[in-house]
């Protein structure tokens, strides 16, 4: 009789443990009740460099010429080039054709 009661108690205890474990496994998660871990912004990942160990240096900042000045330089360049071409047409020669320009646009 004692043996029977002991086996019964252990069976009931095991069943209770199994029921608790089953309940815990199948319980729906509620996000509101849980504290979400704070997500920190991740740094942008640099693009992978394949087949090279060469590190590309960041581009040097360019001196920004205003568009109006750039257009004036282009216009002056065209005038200088036309003058050079006119000189070539007046007396065609290799030297006249390839005279160096003082144009700020190309120098």
């Amino acid at each position: 009789m004692e043996m029977f009661l002991m086996v019964l108690c252990m069976s009931m205890f095991g069943l209770a443990i199994a029921a608790i474990a089953f309940g815990a496994a199948t319980r729906p998660e509620s996000s509101s009740s849980r504290v979400q871990p704070e997500l920190r912004p991740v740094k942008a990942v640099a693009p992978g460099r394949f087949f090279t160990d060469q590190v590309i240096p960041p581009a040097a900042p360019r001196t920004h010429v205003p568009t109006e000045i750039l257009l004036t330089q282009i216009e002056n360049h065209v005038r200088l080039e036309q003058a050079a071409a006119e000189s070539f047409l007046e007396s065609p020669s290799h030297a006249q054709l390839h005279t160096k320009t003082t144009s700020a646009f190309v120098n």
Binding site: E81, Q82, A84, A85, E86, F88, L89, L97, T101
Partner: peptide
């Protein structure tokens, strides 16, 4: 002729 010379330069 003018533009030929300019193009070549």
């Amino acid at each position: 002729q003018l533009f030929q010379a300019m193009w070549l330069r």
